[in-house]
Structure formats: structure tokens, C-alpha cells
């Protein structure tokens, strides 16, 4: 640490070089974030949430078949490393003639992952809504679907907002794994830059800082949304 700092400040030329690298790296890093990290996060999260709601509903349904399918899905995803799943999708599937674009592979992998983990959050949230809320819906003539959509899910959304926000923020960081399936998201950009100049500490720290800034903003938005939804409780 001391040596590194010494080497920077004792040597004006090296200082200038580092400042220069930091500046020129910023653009490709941000590009990676804007073009890939952020879209990958948002698309995967939306698809994942849809999967999660469906899975949660399957788990609480009275149809045994749906329950079993949902259980197997959640268990398989939670029981295997995300990295391995991404490898199977991107490097494995071509063996049976299924070749998928890197970005799409990553979307599939992350969506499946979000779907499984978030389904547990949503299931718990749905079950936490008192039975009387379903009954009040039924008593004014609602069908299962109407009660679910109008009464239960909006309240479950409030309950699951904090844990889902955490999932979302984790996903931002997890998308760095997409670098191994050749998606040029922010971390892969950082790897490409360091391959040319060997300034690992600087460039990876710069990438880390950008992740941090993104996550910080997300947590600000989370707080804002929670306060908005708190109006009625």
C-alpha cells in the first residue's frame, strides 16, 4: 500500500500516467455499465419477477402438479452455483446444437436465478397477508384472480419491497459474472483495459466505485419507494 502510494506521488510521470488511465478508462467502463450491466440487470430482474410471481402462485396453489414443478425449479436453481448455470447455458448447450448469444445467455441465467430466489420472498409475502383480506375480497364477489390482483398482491408488494430491493442490488453486482460468458459489461471492460496496461488496482477500483455509485442510487430510490408505499400503514 505504502509502496504503491509512494510510487505514485514520488514519481510525477507515473502520477500523470495513472490519472490519464483513470480518465480514459472511465468512458469504456461507463459504456459497459450503460450498454450492458444496467440493461442486463433490468431485463433479467423484470423477467425474473414475472417468473417469481408465477412460481410463488404455483407453490401456494392447490394443484399438486404445479407445486411439484415449482419446488423442483427453486431447488435446482438454489442448489447450484450461478456460475455453473451460466456455463451450462453458454458453453454447454451448443453441444446439443443450441447456441445462444452471450447477452441472451446471461439474461436467461440471471432471470432463472432471480425467479427462484424472489419466488420465496413473494410466497412469504403473500402468505403474510391475513386470510381476512381474501375473504373480504370474496365477500364483495371477487374471483380468486381479482382478489389476488387487486387485494393481495398490492399488499404483498409492500411487504416484499425491501427484500426484493436487496435482490435487485445484488443482481447489479452479480451481472459481473456475465463477463465469463463474454458479455462486455462493465467488469469485462475493466478486464480488457487491464490486459493492455496492467493497472489492475486502479482500474478494478474504478469499476468497483462505479458499482458502488449505482447501488447507492438504487438504495436511495428504495427508501423513496418505501416511504411512498408507507402512506397507508
Amino acid at each position: 500500500m505504502k509502496m504503491y502510494l509512494n510510487s505514485i506521488f514520488a514519481d510525477p510521470e507515473r502520477t500523470a500516467r495513472l490519472v490519464d488511465i483513470a480518465k480514459t478508462s472511465l468512458r469504456p467502463l461507463l459504456e459497459g455499465a450503460v450498454m450492458n450491466t444496467i440493461p442486463l440487470t433490468i431485463i433479467s430482474f423484470i423477467i425474473g419477477l414475472i417468473l417469481a410471481v408465477l412460481t410463488a402462485l404455483a407453490r401456494i396453489s392447490h394443484v399438486k402438479f404445479f407445486q411439484i414443478i415449482a419446488r423442483i425449479y427453486v431447488s435446482a436453481i438454489r442448489g447450484t452455483p450461478l456460475l455453473v448455470q451460466l456455463f451450462i447455458i453458454f458453453y454447454g448447450l451448443p453441444n446439443i446444437g443450441v447456441t445462444i448469444d452471450p447477452f441472451i445467455s446471461a439474461v436467461i441465467g440471471f432471470s432463472l436465478s432471480v425467479g427462484a430466489y424472489a419466488s420465496e420472498i413473494i410466497r412469504a409475502a403473500i402468505l403474510s397477508i391475513p386470510k381476512g383480506q381474501w375473504e373480504a375480497g370474496y365477500s364483495i364477489g371477487m374471483s380468486y384472480t381479482q382478489a389476488l390482483k387487486r387485494i393481495i398482491l398490492p399488499q404483498a408488494a409492500r411487504v416484499s419491497l425491501p427484500p426484493l430491493s436487496n435482490s435487485f442490488i445484488s443482481l447489479v453486482k452479480d451481472t459481473s459474472l456475465a463477463s465469463v460468458v463474454l458479455v462486455t459489461e462493465m467488469f469485462r471492460r475493466a478486464q480488457e483495459i487491464t490486459a493492455a496496461n496492467y493497472e489492475f488496482l486502479l482500474v478494478y477500483s474504478e469499476a468497483a466505485l462505479i458499482y458502488w455509485v449505482i447501488c447507492f442510487f438504487l438504495s436511495v430510490i428504495q427508501g423513496f419507494m418505501e416511504r411512498r408505499l408507507d402512506r397507508y400503514v
Binding site: 381476512g132 387485494i151 398490492p154
Partner: peptide, 29 residues
């Protein structure tokens, strides 16, 4: 639809205003 039920612990929809609670059935159902 022939019967209206009033519950011991009200069971109002907490995410809806008084007006929205009352409007929910006629509008949605």
C-alpha cells in the same frame, strides 16, 4: 352477491382509501 358480509375485525383493504374500499366491488366485480 345476494349477501353482504360485515366482519368482526372489519377486514378493510388497508392500501385503499375509504372511498376506494367502497368503490372496489361495483367497479371491479
Amino acid at each position: 352477491r345476494l349477501t353482504g358480509m360485515v366482519f368482526q375485525n372489519y377486514n378493510l383493504f388497508p392500501h385503499k382509501t375509504a372511498l376506494e374500499n367502497v368503490m372496489e366491488g361495483p367497479v371491479i366485480v
